[in-house]
Design a protein around this nucleic acid. Sequence first.
DNA 1: ACCTGAACACCGTTCAAGT
DNA 2: ACCTGAACACCGTTCAAGT
Lengths: 197, 197
Amino acid sequence: MSVAPRPYHHGNLRAALLESAERALVEEGARDLSLRDLARRVGVSHAAPRRHFPDKRALLDALAHDGFERLGEELQSAMDAAGGAFEPRLVAFCRAYVRFATAHAALLELMFAAKHRDDRLRDASAHAFAAPLQLISDGQAAGEIAPGDPERVGTLALAALQGLASLINSGMIESSDRDELVADAVERLLLGLRPRH
Amino acid sequence: MSVAPRPYHHGNLRAALLESAERALVEEGARDLSLRDLARRVGVSHAAPRRHFPDKRALLDALAHDGFERLGEELQSAMDAAGGAFEPRLVAFCRAYVRFATAHAALLELMFAAKHRDDRLRDASAHAFAAPLQLISDGQAAGEIAPGDPERVGTLALAALQGLASLINSGMIESSDRDELVADAVERLLLGLRPRH
DNA sequence: ACCTGAACACCGTTCAAGT
DNA sequence: ACCTGAACACCGTTCAAGT
């Protein structure tokens, strides 16, 4: 039996590299991700990725971009599954965010480590957070939470969640306490956002 | 004139390497920090650091350790300068933390990226946060904030600040809005911590 | 006890050349 | 248009040898 010869042209090298990179990202860290190793895994020469990603940074940015897309989808579907009421939707958003952030720690690091964020990345992150932002506007319109710039309120909420995820991922918080802490954070967050009489 | 010959033994290579590393950390990122480059800057062979740091990880851990010590000092002195009342001290802590975290972005990344935190690092971080933790206990005893596990309350507060710093460092928040956002966060944090009647 | 120099196995990036 | 192979300038780590 002859081994099927690998064609000279891979066909979908870009997608294969990204897929392989995501696997490597969960196995090892983002630190030790090597272009040459990815090329090896996909079965292609170490110079081949250059056609699809001008340099390593470009591949990492593409990973971050896909990460924002997946995050957006998970946030959206978690909120949809929570029904139409404000508070359950907010809780669902918070849980889903921390869940994603701790399940994909290395990817999240990449998503937020992009100092020189290009426009594509900026758009992707804005799109991922569109639904929760809308939730806040809706909550304000319904008088569930105090008025104010939704962007500002959303940023503070996101910061609290991102900080929780960061502490969990760094090992300062045991992840077994995760759900309890998220519930606590949401409760206090709501207290801080409640309309004042 | 003859150039003074460099002695064979450096004398304080460990300290010199750490100092040089901190400079490199603010110039470039933590990513691109190279042991060989540090050795070069200090004027020593690339194998010399091995005597003082078994590997690169050990040097990074030492940097993180020093970072926690400096953070602790800054938090302490900022709180002391704010006087004895609860709220000014809390505000001072929050501002000082975000200030340190954004002024030393790469260092902070190192301090929280240490997945396999050894005991020394754990102790250093606990020591750095001892004063704010005490503040929370005091605030509870004085009835300024709701009772509850101080560790838990402190963790939530730290998470909010850490998240803000993370969003600022990633470029998602313009750092010009920093003080305003911190003030806003503190206000809402206090609302979330206020005793409930 | 502390440091050097050569060696090893890796990197990312570049570029002429192949298909 | 897409990929290869050799080359270049770097890494971290190891280890015999020097002072």
